[in-house]
Design a protein around this nucleic acid. Sequence first.
DNA 1: GCCATGACATCCA
DNA 2: GTGGATGCCATGG
Length: 101
Amino acid sequence: MDREEYVEAVLQAVESIPPGSVATYGDIAEYVGQGGPRQVGAVMREYGGGVAWWRVIRASGVPADEVGDEQLHLLRADGVRITNGRVNLRQVRWDPEIQEH
DNA sequence: GCCATGACATCCA
DNA sequence: GTGGATGCCATGG
């Protein structure tokens, strides 16, 4: 799989996250089936501007230091419950299975 | 090919 | 919950 195709796959995965839900970098990597969490992060750094990058967070529920403030703000706008600067993964974690295909 | 880096994850104290 | 160590995997020098 070319790097460009990988980028497309990642962006597509991010776009398929419904509003009010979030996914971890690991989830995206697993969904795409290639590379790992760090590669997803690398893609987001370069091409994340075109998608809902704020719906991608760490497994801990804490957003990346670089974008944390904006991200929490945007997530709250999407209807995501934020507690103590941390996302409640229990409730908003994206499940590819529950998608309305 | 070796080494350093990074919007990460997991394990363990 | 916190902090350090280790693993992972692609990219760039």
